[in-house]
Design a protein around this nucleic acid. Structure first.
Lengths: 327, 327
DNA sequence: AGAAAAACCGTAAACGTTTTCGTGCGCGAG
DNA sequence: CTCGCGCACGAAAACGTTTACGGTTTTTCT
C-alpha cells in the first residue's frame, strides 16, 4: 500500500542503498543520481518509515515531555514552545500528563523511554533519587528543577521574587506576608529562597504563611490569614492564588491596592485581564521550553562531560495591585 | 544494551516465537510455558520494542492530535482528556500545534500519518475538500467540525447559544448584539446558527457585528460598536472577547450588568474568576476529547459502514453579568 | 599512460518483532 | 495397529530501513 524505499529505487534505477544514502547523507552520492533519486521520491510521495529507520539506527526522532497538569497554562506554554522547537528540528513530540502524581511521572517516562530519544521532565515532584533513577532510563532534561548531573532549563524564580521585594520596599512596605505554595515544590523553594535573601537584605518583617494549595481556593483561605497578620503587602506563590486573594479581599471590603498591595507570580493571561491588573513576575516559559529541547538535542550527541544548566531571566511586571502603603 | 525478546526466549528455554505468542495471544501456548515466559520477561524487565512490532503489524500504538493553539485552554482541555483516554487504552499521544494556520494543519497530519494509527483534528480551519484530502492519509476523527463521511466528536454550540438567547429574553431583553468570531470558523457558524434560530423564535432584534479577532483586543474593539448600536445585551463569540468587552465598558463607565448584560462562551477558568463573574456556556471539552479517541479506536477496527458523529451537550452557566434590562 | 587513490554504488546483513509454515507428538477412531 | 488430526512449539521469512563491505568506475598523480 504505502510507498517504500524499494519503489523509489526501482523508479530511479538505483539500489535501495543509494536511495537511503541520497536522502540521509547526500555527500555520499553523485549529485546527478541524487537529484534523480530525489525526483523519484517526490513524484511517488515517498516518506521514510520512521519505525524501520529507528529500528536500525536506535534513534526514534521523537522526544517526550511529561508535565504535571495540561490544564495549567504555565505548562502548556512550555509545551507549545517545546513542540515548536522540536518540529523545527524534525522531531515529533509525545506528551503525557502526570496529574501531579510523582509515581505517575516516573511510570510515564519509563513508558516513553523506548519510544523516544529523550524526554523533558517538567517540574517533577519526584524525590531526587527517583529523578536519578528515571534519568537512567532515557536521556533526561529537567525543566524548573535543578539537580547535579542532569541538564536543566531553569527560570530565575528566585531573582524574580527578589525583584518583587525590591519593588515593595521601594514603595515603602516594611511588613509583608508570603503565601507559600507546596513546601516540597522546587518552585516554592526557589521563590522562597529569593524572598528570604531580599528580606534579609532590606530588613523587612516577613510573615511566612502556609503552605496552601496553589489554587484559587488556596488564595481565598490564605487571604484571611494574611490580613489577620496585619501586613501592608501580600506576596502570593502564584497568580491563581493571588486571584483568590483579590476575590476574598474584595468580598471583605478591603481595597486593593488602597489597603493592601498584592503580587502574583507567573503572569498568566488573566493576570493582566483582571482589575486592578495584577503586579506579577513573568516566567520565560517559551524560552525555557526552547532551551529544554536545545539542551536535549545537544545532550544526545555530546560526551556528557559537562552538564549544562541554563537559567532564563524572569521579569517583574508592575501593574495595578501595588502602591505605597497608607501608613 | 536493551533486553530483547531473544533474551527472554533464552531464559525461558523456548523460542522467540513462543515468547511472542505467550505475550500477545496467550491461548496459543500451554499455560505452563506461558507462566515460565512471563516470569522470565518480568525478571528481565522486558518491554517489547514498539517500533519493531509496528514494523510488522502495521499498527503503531500511537495516535496524534493537532490543535490550532496550545495556548488556548479550550484545546488543552481537549488534549488533556485525549491524552488520558489514550493512555488508558495503551496508546501514546503525539501532539502538534498548527498555530491557527490551515496549511500547517494539513502538513502536520500528513507528517504524523506514518507514525500513528489515526489522528484527531481539532476545529480545523481547512476547506472541506482539504479535510477530505488529509482524511485519505490516515484515520481521521474531527473535533468540533462536522463533515459527512468522517467521524466526529462535537459539542452542541448551537444549543448553547440558543440557551443564551432563551435566558436573555426570559430576563426581558429584546435587542441584543452578537459579536462574531471569524466568519469561516465552524464554531462561529454553529453558534450563529443557534443564535439565529432562537432570535427568530423569540422575535428579538439582532444586531450582527463583526467579524472580530476572537481575542481580548477584539472584544475591546467590538464593545464600542455594540454600545453604539444601543442594545441591552451583548453576546460575545467567546469568553476572551467578552473579557475585552467588560474591560472596555468599565473604562467607559458603562456598568455591567446594570447598563448592559454581557455573555461569553466556553467557560474558561477566568470566566468564573473575574468580577462580576461572567455568564457563559460551558463546553464539554473533556467529554469531547474522550469520545474523540473512543471514536478513533472504534473506527480502526470497524468496516466503516456507519460514521458516528457524537455531539455532547453544552451547559449555560448563569453568573453575574446578566440581569433584566433597565428599560 | 599507468598505477594508486578516491569516489560512487550494489549486495547483503542487521535491527526486534510477528506470523506462516512445518514438525513432532499424543490421542481418539476405525 | 494404523491412520489422521489437533495441539504445542520451533525455524524462518517478512516488515522497511541503514550500513559494512566489496567491487567498479572515475580521478589524480607521476
Amino acid at each position: 500500500m504505502a510507498v517504500t524505499i524499494r519503489d523509489v529505487a526501482r523508479r530511479a534505477h538505483v539500489s535501495v542503498a543509494t536511495v537511503s544514502r541520497a536522502l540521509t547523507s547526500p555527500e555520499l552520492v553523485r549529485p546527478e543520481t541524487r537529484t534523480r533519486v530525489l525526483a523519484a521520491a517526490t513524484e511517488l510521495g515517498y516518506q521514510p518509515n520512521r519505525a524501520a529507520r529507528g529500528l536500525i539506527t536506535g534513534k526514534t526522532g521523537n522526544i517526550g515531555i511529561v508535565v504535571p497538569d495540561l490544564d495549567n497554562p504555565f505548562f502548556t506554554g512550555v509545551l507549545k514552545a517545546v513542540q515548536a522547537r522540536a518540529m523545527q528540528a524534525d522531531y515529533a513530540v509525545f506528551v503525557a500528563d502526570s496529574d501531579e502524581d510523582p509515581v505517575a511521572e516516573a511510570k510515564l517516562v519509563h513508558a516513553m523511554a523506548k519510544q523516544v530519544d529523550g524526554v523533558v521532565l517538567c517540574a517533577p515532584g519526584l524525590e531526587d533519587s527517583q529523578v536519578y533513577e528515571v534519568a537512567g532510563a532515557t536521556s533526561l532534561v529537567l525543566l524548573n528543577r535543578r539537580l547535579p548531573g542532569v541538564p536543566a532549563a531553569l527560570m530565575d524564580s528566585a531573582g524574580g521574587m527578589h525583584a518583587v521585594i525590591d519593588h515593595l520596599v521601594a514603595l515603602g512596605h516594611h511588613r509583608v506576608a508570603y503565601l507559600n505554595g507546596p513546601r516540597t515544590s522546587w518552585s516554592n523553594q526557589e521563590r522562597r529562597r529569593g524572598l528570604m535573601k531580599a528580606v534579609a537584605k532590606h530588613g523587612v518583617d516577613l510573615v511566612d504563611l502556609g503552605p496552601f494549595a496553589p489554587r484559587y481556593e488556596g488564595g481565598l483561605q490564605a487571604a484571611d490569614l494574611a490580613v489577620a497578620a496585619d501586613t501592608t503587602a501580600i506576596v502570593a506563590y502564584n497568580d491563581i492564588m493571588a486571584l483568590g486573594v483579590l476575590a476574598r479581599l474584595r468580598d471583605r471590603g478591603i481595597s486593593v491596592p488602597g489597603d493592601v498591595s498584592v503580587t502574583g507570580f507567573d503572569d498568566l493571561t488573566y493576570a493582566s485581564l483582571c482589575s486592578p491588573a495584577l503586579t506579577t513576575v513573568a516566567m520565560p516559559v517559551a524560552q525555557a521550553g526552547r532551551t529544554a529541547v536545545n539542551l536535549l538535542l545537544d545532550w544526545l550527541d555530546s560526551d556528557h562531560t559537562d552538564v549544562p544548566q541554563i537559567v532564563a531571566e524572569t521579569q517583574l511586571i508592575v501593574r495595578g495591585t501595588t502602591t505605597p502603603p497608607k501608613r
